[in-house]
Simulated scan of single mutants.
Amino acid sequence: MTEPEPATSGTFVSYDAPDRRRWLAEAVRAVEADANRSADTHLHQFPLDPAWSVDLYLKDESVHPTGSLKHRLARSLFLYALVNGWVTEGTTVIEASSGSTAVSEAYFARLLGLPFVAVMPRTTSPEKIALIEFHGGRCHFVDEPGRVYAEARRLADETGGHYMDQFTYAERATDWRGNNNIAVSIFEQMALERHPVPSWVVVGAGTGGTSATIGRYVRYRCHPTRVLVTDPESSAFFGAYAAQDPSYTVPGSSRIEGIGRPRVEPSFVPGVVDAMLSVPDAASVAAARWCTAVTGRSAGGSTGTALWGAVRMLAEMRARGEAGSVVTLLCDGGERYAHTYYDDAWVAAQGLDVAACTATLERFAATGEWVEPQL
């Protein structure tokens, strides 16, 4: 093997090229133009007794071009990968995802003319698989949910592509200080409400990126707002938070797609989370269905998980005589879960007591009182 000649003083070494920078500039313009074309998502007031001193709001992220909160994340991840030089012309983009992030990343990959592969559990809903393929992506399935990370890395190495790795980069790809992130949008839209600074913002944890963005923003802006993270069954986030042990894991996978993970993801920042609540899957499904029935806006399971926590928090505020507002997210539409959360046969096969949880929600709506269901 020939030894390279030593560099002499004043020698430049560069791997950059004008064509690469021109492609990058056009790619960034295309991604930013997508954001510029899209109006901000709506903030809906949830119908509650107007005589109450507490208000509930739903930030409707289902109206993004790809139908979910993950559209924001995918845009940020692509911009981050582009400006870091990780994604260039012709790069195959690979992601480990339970569905919605992959749908949104497939959309942006096609926008830039890039191949996209989603590595996901075989149990992912057929509606999400169809959406990924509609946007030009390819689905690569694994039988064990915990294998998605290693398999995505293997495919990236094999193809010379880039593993986007939402679970690591979600919290750093989004500018938490501003730049039209979801926290800025919420506070701007709340400005004329009777309780304009929310007492609580309630979100679920999938990557941990949303809670990190909102938690950092409220601290940066010195708002008194607190962040509640709701976690479904078979997820590691709640147990890790309670034990203060980031190595905490759980076996299996969450039935609530989009949130809940078998390990604590690198993007989860517990220091900006003020409280956590473990939510039974039956409650998540019941709250999603209840939201759809009461508001007419179809909601997915992760929305149900967060809504359950938001309603419970409102009940506690009322019981303490507090006035204020609570904001949560409508993460994606329920039409993606027609074969699961909205299928009575699937719910029964899972052994979920949705009726008991629905009764708790209906009692709250009628009286403002919270009675924990016996499951």
Rank of each mutant, 00 (worst) to 15 (best):
E3V: 02
G10V: 09
W23N: 12
W23D: 13
A27H: 09
V28N: 03
V28W: 06
A33P: 00
R37C: 10
R37F: 09
D40L: 06
L43N: 09
F46K: 04
L48C: 01
E61A: 04
H64G: 00
S68K: 06
L73W: 00
S76H: 10
L79N: 11
V83R: 11
T88M: 09
G90C: 06
G90Q: 06
I94Q: 04
G113R: 15
L114I: 01
F116P: 10
P121N: 08
P121L: 03
R122Y: 10
R122K: 14
T124G: 05
T124D: 00
A130R: 07
G136H: 08
F141D: 14
D143P: 02
E144L: 13
A150V: 00
R154M: 08
L155T: 13
T159S: 13
Q166V: 00
I186H: 02
E188Q: 14
P198D: 15
W200V: 01
W200N: 01
V201N: 08
G204L: 06
T210V: 10
R219M: 07
R221L: 05
L228V: 08
V229D: 12
A240V: 14
A240I: 11
S247E: 13
T249G: 03
G252L: 03
S254F: 02
G260D: 15
V273E: 10
V279C: 07
D281F: 03
A288M: 08
T305E: 03
A306T: 14
A310K: 01
R320F: 04
G333L: 05
G334W: 09
E335K: 07
Y337G: 03
G351T: 11
L352H: 05
A355H: 08
C357M: 01
T360D: 04
A366H: 14
G368E: 09
V371D: 12
L375T: 12
